[in-house]
């Protein structure tokens, strides 16, 4: 029966072909440093799952953001766990993505033919930092408020258009409800959309080109 269903699905979805190209392929023997990429993907997935569920109770408004997070932490069953994973996952992700970048650099894996993989990877690193920056404001506590105040102020020092950038980031001259709403939007829609599309290209290229080998002395 199971085989029948599998065959029916395979005929329509081409499961065998996917298995053949994605999973059942030979790759060079590599060391443990090469697990950092999948670790980044794993953490991104954890962030996505916990983040999605956090929005179930979180309210992006200065009046209620703090209270809604208190509610998540104190009253909702396992709210502390979901937020805890999301909070620590953010930091861990920055570390792992950065290490992944260093691994790629030190093994020279960004060179031909993997230039575009590197390119998308650097965008993913920047997006990760962007997620950290925007997500930091959302709890609307003292720490996040003042960090964002200074962070946006830094963007404001850019010559000529600094003031304009600052106003765009904050949605006005003040750090206000408008800022919180746009940071929220960036954090849950815009940046994730960027991340998902970059990950798709990144993954496609990894499957197409294979993971890089550890370079020998004469390479």
């Amino acid at each position: 029966m199971a085989e029948k269903i599998y065959n029916w699905l395979d005929e329509r979805l081409g499961l065998e072909a996917i298995y053949g190209t994605v999973l059942d392929r030979k790759v060079p023997k590599v060391n443990w440093w090469f697990t950092l990429g999948s670790a980044s993907l794993f953490l991104a997935g954890m962030q996505a799952v916990t983040g999605i569920f956090l929005t179930m109770y979180y309210v992006p408004s200065p009046d209620k953001a703090y209270d809604s997070i208190q509610y998540i932490m104190n009253d909702v069953a396992f709210g502390w766990l979901i937020r805890g994973i999301h909070h620590w996952g953010a930091s861990l992700m920055v570390v792992i993505v950065f290490l992944h970048m260093l691994r790629t650099f030190f093994y020279g894996a960004y060179k031909y033919p993997r230039e575009i993989t590197w390119l998308t990877g650097t965008f993913l690193l920047l997006f990760t930092l962007g997620m950290g920056f925007t997500g930091y404001l959302l709890p609307w506590n003292q720490r996040s408020f003042w960090a964002t105040m200074v962070g946006t102020e830094i963007a404001g020092t850019v010559p000529l258009m600094g003031d304009f950038i600052l106003k765009v980031l904050r949605g006005g001259t003040d750090l206000s409800a408008v800022t919180l709403a746009r940071f929220f939007s960036a954090h849950i829609w815009i940046l994730p959309a960027g991340i998902v599309s970059m990950i798709s290209v990144h993954m496609y290229l990894i499957i197409r080109l294979g993971i890089s080998n550890i370079p020998s002395e004469e390479e």
């Binding site: 799952v49 569920f53 179930m56 009253d75 909702v76 069953a77 396992f78 709210g79 766990l81 979901i82």
Partner: peptide, 8 residues
Amino acid sequence: PIIGYIIS
């Protein structure tokens, strides 16, 4: 935990 989180 997510199930608990949703129904709590």
